[in-house]
Computed example of a mutant assay.
Amino acid sequence: MDMHILTVILLGIVEGLTEFLPVSSTGHLILASELLGYDAATWAMFNVVIQLGAILAVVVLYWRTFWAVAMGLLRREPASWRFLRNLVIAFIPAAVIGLAVHDYVEMLLGAPMVVAVALVVGGVAILLIERMAKDNRYHGIADIPLPQVIGIGLIQCIAMIPGVSRSGATIMGALTLGVERRTAAEFSFFLAIPTMLGASTLELLKNGDRITSADVGWGSIALGFLVSFIVAVIVIRWFVGLVSRRGFIPFAWYRIAAGIGAILWLSLR
């Protein structure tokens, strides 16, 4: 198989596997670029845009939820309006802060050691939060009060540091604020839709003219999109069942092991 196509498929798999797990999809894509030895700058926009394939997986798997909310909005049901309000309010901090620090975040995308350290620190944080967060008062997205929603939105912004994990920050923030595990995971799925749509749109507006002149073309993006979509569908189904039974501890230990391994590799190469 052509190495270019193999790289596209591999990055699509990495994106689909890691976008909704608390392990940092961006961090894994950055480390993959170092491991495979390709030019990360050339593939930067590819990595952002194929995230939309993973986002489509959420829409497909949870279409009944979105349909029910849409019908509830038409009928002016309070629960549906609270659901929409919570997603919009939680998204606003990432939109505002993301625009303000976009250039700085792009600079960090070229720093694999930042990713490695963030993986370890995030893993330790998950272990601590899982031990301390026992107050599970909120069992539905529409049930989360506004102050907690604002807190989750602000905590999500920490994930602008590569390696932190958007889903991990959102889920752990929700747990510390009293949201039960399954609801915290699903809130992170739904919040990913406006967040990643915004990030991909911004990237296309700023750098869309580069994509046809670079080694990565629209055909490669389409293939990466499809691969990330298929893998994400499988991962989301598995992930919700796992965290309901065992929590997030396995992902904490994975992050710590992967981060330490990356630090050693980056230091010794």
Rank of each mutant, 00 (worst) to 15 (best):
D2W: 05
I5L: 15
L6Y: 06
T7R: 13
L10F: 14
G12E: 11
L17S: 06
L17Q: 04
V23G: 01
V23C: 02
S25W: 07
G27L: 05
G27E: 05
I30R: 05
L31G: 00
S33L: 09
L35K: 08
L36H: 09
G37V: 08
A40C: 01
A41V: 12
A44N: 12
Q51W: 02
Q51V: 04
G53R: 02
G53S: 08
I55V: 15
L56S: 04
A57W: 00
V58H: 03
V59H: 00
V59D: 05
V60N: 01
L61W: 04
L61H: 03
Y62F: 15
W63F: 15
A68M: 09
M71H: 13
G72K: 09
L73M: 15
P78A: 13
P78K: 13
A79W: 04
F83Y: 14
R85T: 12
N86G: 11
I89T: 12
A90P: 09
F91M: 10
A94H: 07
V101D: 03
V101G: 08
L108I: 12
M113C: 07
M113F: 14
V114N: 05
V117R: 07
L119A: 07
L119Q: 08
V120I: 15
G123C: 12
M132G: 08
M132Y: 13
M132H: 13
A133E: 09
A133V: 10
R137A: 14
I144S: 04
I144H: 03
L146M: 14
P147N: 12
G153H: 02
L154V: 15
L154K: 01
L154Q: 03
L154W: 04
S167E: 04
T170Y: 05
I171H: 03
G173F: 00
G173S: 08
G173E: 08
G173T: 04
L177W: 10
E180F: 10
R181W: 07
R181C: 08
R181F: 06
E186L: 08
S188Y: 10
F189V: 09
L191V: 11
I193T: 12
P194C: 11
G198H: 09
S200K: 01
L204R: 00
N207S: 14
S213M: 11
A214N: 13
G217F: 02
G219F: 02
S220W: 05
F229K: 00
F229W: 08
I234C: 05
V235K: 02
V235I: 14
F239W: 09
G241Q: 12
V243Y: 06
F248K: 03
F251I: 08
A252Y: 06
I256V: 15
I260L: 15
W265H: 01
W265N: 02
S267Q: 11
